[in-house]
Nucleic acid binder design. Structure first.
Lengths: 202, 202
DNA sequence: AGCTTTTTCTGACCACTGGTCAGTATTCTA
DNA sequence: TAGAATACTGACCAGTGGTCAGAAAAAGCT
């Protein structure tokens, strides 16, 4: 037990070291920018060793993405104040801002999750956790008649497309002469939400 | 003269052959998927020859992107019926649909133009032609008081972000369980435009 | 015609990539 | 301490983008 623990402890430590070094480099220049050899050199082991912990580059970055997105899901879930009932439309706007902010803070993970083409994969691609959370709030908006008649998925996808648009443009075209970025983000989100609202009563 | 012409004719022909073969391959799997060697093999020349016509891979694909986007600009410009005055908001919606359609038809060019990270470039990135066209129509919407008070660039960027969002998601996540794609595109665009409108008079 | 210059083109070469694997070094077990 | 299990290295593979000396071909000139 204790003996095995020592070995496994080292193993876990190296795994974390790899992940952290990878995250750092990876968030700078994106997926293609970092090589396994380069990564190994930073850590101080042979590049072969990395493959003892991760099947390939994709799996390594998949791990990072998963970690990052667990963080996003947490952030989104925490937006709903416990106990208090919150206007779902307000919640949606808050979630939108949190989503964009997350993307800008984790551009590498964002790129990998939503932008990178996976050469092999023709898999049907299940909706991710964040999408399900979004869908839940949208369902509430529709159930409470805050939204006009529209299907849950249609509304959710309209909103996702919108926040993804501003997020990815700000990540990948950072040197474009943007108007004030904060205001722009807010405008984009408000705009998308407003369009889905039911005619204001009265 | 005539002698030089013969040589240059061959040269131009090869150039076009390269571009066309590149476009075909490139539109399938994106920038990273195609190698210069592979390309040369398809054409039937050594990969070194390609560098006689294009400085590097980036320049080659830059040419393709330019060609594609010239096409987009044409399509957008042609939307305005000659002579007739057209409601600028209607025009905007039409342009939005044309933009998305263009992206879906030229995913490779779209990827290169708006998504790929250029490792070297920290250049300020001038707005492209299509953006300027968009800006013109938006300016008209504002001048004619069809839009609420908002700066031209802010409104233009809100619209661009929106159409980019749906375009890039449909390109890069084609296997997501989308609602009806056509309707979704229309909803996204209408939604964005609606949010910018002035309160309906009366 | 020939001879020379200019242009086109090839294939070997460079440093790099992701990934594998036989052989070695280390650690655990008994 | 001997033997089994694990961790690790570094050479190796096929591929990448890009370069360049030298071969081949075309053009210009007398």
């Amino acid at each position: 037990m204790g003996s095995q623990t020592l070995r496994q402890k080292y193993r876990q430590e190296l795994r974390r070291t790899i992940l952290e070094a990878a995250r750092e480099a990876f968030e700078q220049g994106g997926y293609e920018s970092l090589s396994m050899r380069n990564l190994a050199e930073r850590i101080g082991c042979s590049h072969g060793s990395i493959y003892l912990h991760f099947k390939d580059k994709e799996e390594l970055f998949d791990c990072l993405v998963e970690e990052s997105f667990a963080g996003l899901a947490e952030v989104l879930a925490a937006l709903r104040p416990p106990g208090k009932k919150i206007d779902p439309v307000v919640l949606l706007r808050k979630a939108g801002r949190a989503y964009v902010e997350f993307g800008l803070r984790n551009p590498g993970a964002y790129e990998f999750a939503f932008v990178l083409r996976r050469p092999g994969a023709a898999h049907p691609e299940k909706p991710h956790h964040a999408y399900k959370l979004l869908r839940g709030v949208v369902a509430q908006c529709i159930a409470e008649k805050r939204f006009r008649r529209i299907s849950i998925d249609m509304a959710s996808q309209v909103l996702w497309a919108t926040v993804h648009g501003i997020t990815s443009l700000l990540i990948f075209r950072p040197n474009f002469p943007w108007a004030d970025k904060k205001k722009l983000i807010a405008r984009v989100i408000d705009n998308a939400a407003a369009g889905l609202l039911a005619e204001s009563p009265g």
